[in-house]
Design a protein around this nucleic acid. Structure first.
Lengths: 230, 230
DNA sequence: CGGGATCCGTAAAGATACTG
DNA sequence: CAGTATCTTTACGGATCCCG
């Protein structure tokens, strides 16, 4: 973006020089939503090359938005500084605008199972689930093999685990739908109940877990801006 | 920015595809601040090529953010649609963030007399001025010739006029300073009184007009987010 | 496996000139 | 006034490789 940027003293211009380069807003979204490690960031930014991710992280560090430091385990972690945390209203405002003014059909043409599952892992609410390990398998039968099957493993006291290959545990609940339906539920444009009723979603297994799905699933943090169906 | 964009259903991603291309945020700033014509937009975007400006306007029109139509005088005008007006919180949030977190020294290294004067023309408040035509000349003696002298002509009932060449009227007030000082005043980081006291600003002419300068000058619409001097 | 660096082809943007 | 046309420079994407 730079070769001296826009050369304007206006603070909008100064901010745009920092924020409006390719992938930067999405990288900040991942950091604001809690990812801290290089390869976790990559999971939310599937089509961003690692070279560019590395470059952007360095730029954000130089601009005082990101701090790079080894975490508890000794592995490098990237955290937002106060200046970076202060960007949250901007990223949220962009999300709300997108929800309100972009045709949801356009969004639903850009399905991404990895991004959806990764975001679900992050927002899943274990509170209404049984106090034991629960394994939930998601099936998207129409997708290519690499993104057809996913497992979420929820264990009390541990972070939720997302697997793309069978973790070997007995499955408590099977969730089957097309990826579009699950994405629409996640974005607040559809509901578990409506999708079940219209046969776009099937739940097989633990009755309790199935009944509570709308609750433990949570929703995208941007879902509450959703436009009511036209 | 595109070759299929980011390929993510997330609304932040959808918004970023629209907003985070070079010059787009600054173009929206100009439209949000009230410019409607191609060459007026160019005045606020000095280093943007007309080819790219034309391209961006077409893109924004295709995205439903800008409407292109002939104005009352028959000349083409660009206006924001409701979807475009809804972007105001985002652009404002970026301005506030820039004011709060970018070192003002960095901003003041990107002085731009044309941008400053054009913004002053837009925000000038004629209310405290005499009820007759007033001509104010600004001098930036250290600048290259093309941006050294500016005239603001304020006439009751007419839009404020900005000239880069002598309009020929008798000057009511001469304002002389370095461009940095006037920009800092405009951004709320300095005041007329302080600059006068420190001899960074000189006012010659109508006493009344000079005394009221801080009032009729107005300030950048982003000035109230200014960080107090360290 | 985490965290990158390198190389090369393509796409976007800048500079400048020109036009209906 | 409201843009095109053309040419050069820069940024980005994608594949591959490296190293602790």
């Amino acid at each position: 973006m730079n070769q001296a940027g826009y050369a304007q003293f206006c603070p909008v211009s100064m901010a745009a020089e920092v924020l409006c380069t390719r992938w930067t807003i999405l990288l900040l979204r991942e950091l604001l939503f809690g990812s801290t490690r290089f390869n976790d960031l990559r999971r939310g930014l599937a089509r961003m090359s690692p070279a560019l991710l590395s470059q952007r992280l360095k730029e954000l560090e130089a601009e005082g938005i990101v701090r790079r430091a080894p975490g508890a385990s000794g592995v490098l972690e990237y955290h937002l500084t106060p200046a970076g945390e202060a960007l949250r209203p901007i990223v949220e405002a962009m999300g709300f605008w997108g929800q309100r003014w972009i045709d949801s059909e356009l969004s639903l043409q850009k399905l991404d199972a990895q991004l959806l599952m990764w975001d679900m892992r992050r927002r899943l609410n274990p509170a209404p689930m049984p106090r034991r390990r629960c394994t939930i398998q998601f099936q998207y039968p129409e997708r290519p093999e690499t993104e057809r099957l996913w497992w979420l493993v929820v264990e009390p006291g541990k972070p939720v685990d997302l697997c793309g290959i069978d973790p070997g545990f007995e499955v408590d609940l099977y969730v089957a739908s097309d990826l579009r339906t699950m994405t629409a539920i996640w974005m607040g444009q559809d509901t578990v109940r409506a999708a079940l009723g219209a046969d776009r979603l099937k739940l097989i297994g633990d009755r309790e877990l199935a009944a509570q799905m709308q609750t433990w699933l949570g929703l995208s943090s941007l879902a509450y801006a959703a436009r009511p169906a036209a």
